[in-house]
């Protein structure tokens, strides 16, 4: 079940990223292409087999996980900026690039790096699962690490939630409203993933569902906007 979700998400993301290559080469909206490409890498690195391969190549110290966190931040930054400029009012992009956005990004990055350095990260393990089982100290550090990693995406998406809701409820073309609606679902899923530490292990599957629902909804929402634009320019 989790495997299907992971590989489906990877396939969807990869296909859209590849489909965007020609327009990216023509210089059209490269940042959207980078969002797809980064998301593809993110999903690739969150699946066991590719993660293990990449991390062993990087020295087997879970450096790949640190890279993964920053890939997510980069993708969310670009996506957030696009959503703010597209859906939001004039001042919306400042929520991402303004002082609060930058402080949030800086804090989350700093915490991630510091906590990563504080851990004994030897032994590749997807999601740092095996590190958490080392001892109580490491278990706590892994939780902080994860929380900091989820903080920035949640901040960006929640900051833009009003703009998405407004677009979803507007009189704009149905496809655009559907896109905004999907992104709202993605935002809700990202926000729910903040609850990961308190989800009991028996419901551990929920963590995966939240994460992949978020990615799938955001990617599909973006892809639908592209589809609508392509369709409009053809007629």
């Amino acid at each position: 079940m989790i495997g299907i979700l992971q590989w489906t998400t990877l396939a969807v993301c990869g296909i859209v990223a590849i489909a965007r290559i020609p327009s990216a080469l023509r210089g059209q909206n490269r940042s959207v292409f980078f969002v797809y490409a980064l998301m593809t890498l993110v999903i690739l690195l969150s699946i066991e087999a590719p993660y293990m391969a990449v991390d062993r190549a990087l020295g087997g110290t879970n450096l790949a996980n640190l890279v993964l966190r920053f890939l997510i931040f980069a993708a969310i930054f670009l996506l957030g900026l696009g959503i703010a400029r597209g859906f939001g009012a004039e001042d919306a992009p400042r929520r991402i690039t303004g002082p609060i956005g930058m402080v949030t990004l800086g804090t989350a990055s700093l915490v991630i790096v510091v906590v990563f350095l504080m851990m004994d990260t030897a032994g590749s393990s997807t999601g740092l699962v095996s590190l958490a089982t080392k001892d109580a100290h490491h278990a706590a550090l892994v939780e902080y690490y994860g929380a900091a990693g989820r903080l920035y995406p949640a901040y960006v998406m929640l900051a833009l939630l009003p703009a998405m809701l407004r677009t979803a409820a507007s009189r704009l073309p149905g496809l655009l409203r559907l896109s905004a609606g999907l992104m709202v679902v993605g935002t809700v899923a990202i926000t729910l993933s903040l609850l990961s530490p308190v989800i009991p292990p028996s419901l551990g599957i929920l963590r995966f569902i939240f994460n992949y629902t978020a990615v799938l909804c955001l990617i599909l929402g973006l892809a639908l906007i592209w589809l609508g634009k392509a369709r409009a320019s053809r007629t």
Binding site: N29, G82, I83, G86, I225, W226, G228, A230, A232
Partner: peptide, 11 residues
């Protein structure tokens, strides 16, 4: 105009 803005930035 709003549709175009979305298409320009996210399409």
């Amino acid at each position: 105009a709003q549709t175009n803005k979305i298409w320009e930035n996210l399409g």
